[in-house]
Design a protein around this nucleic acid. Structure first.
Lengths: 112, 112
DNA sequence: TCCATAATTCCATAATATTAAAAATGTCGT
DNA sequence: ACGACATTTTTAATATTATGGAATTATGGA
């Protein structure tokens, strides 16, 4: 993954509605959620939601599939994985205390 | 960490210059790098660099410390860690195949 | 104090993103 | 084919962010 791809993906997540959409879709897994349900859950008008869904799609973070009159959106695991790998491995390799689960207990100084 | 904080941090990284600054600072570790050196390494004019450094600082991703006439910037581990934890644990918990190192070999279908 | 260096603030401009109403499109049941 | 519903496209106003030149502030040495 190159910088521009990562920037696109990060930009897609760097917006409250879109981050909420993303976080709503993660637990929905492969099953995903129809647009209308997302709109209702997050109280976003349809035209606005479509705009954000397109951004996420363009960034490779979600997928969609028509199902009757609804369109069902779901997390695109491959894209999410690539981004996280880029951040975790390419950025943080050699600095595992930045990311490695524990969040560096030895880094916590004077914070109790 | 709440959504707005995460959005601020993601937005800070969602820009090519800033992501490059971030990636330049990670291997520099706690030692960090003076602004001038960053400007030279990435070929960014001083005024522009300052703007981006402020964004990253505001987002809690980097720290700074004056050292003689230079100001030395370095990764703020705590902030980075919080963001990654938010994305990895809060988002991906229960969906470890999204993030867990392996990037789900069993998810790769028909892509060879 | 005066100079050179390092970085920031100020400012105007340009570029990009967000929002949502209105119209259009696609899909199903009848 | 028609009507009801789900979603998208178009469009335009509004807001936010990026850029870099010029002036300013901070620091250390002579």
């Amino acid at each position: 993954m190159e910088v521009k791809t990562a920037v696109t993906a990060l930009a897609a997540l760097a917006q409250e509605s879109r981050l909420s959409i993303f976080r709503l879709l993660v637990p929905a897994g492969r099953v995903g959620m129809p647009a209308g349900e997302i709109a209702e859950a997050l109280d976003i008008p349809p035209a606005t939601l479509t705009f954000h869904l397109k951004e996420l799609t363009y960034a490779g973070l979600i997928d969609s599939q028509r199902e009757g009159r609804s369109i069902r959106y779901s997390i695109r695991e491959e894209g999410v994985c690539e981004l996280f790998t880029y951040l975790l491995l390419d950025c943080c390799n050699g600095q595992p205390e930045l990311c490695g689960g524990s969040c560096g207990p030895k880094n916590r100084r004077g914070k109790r």
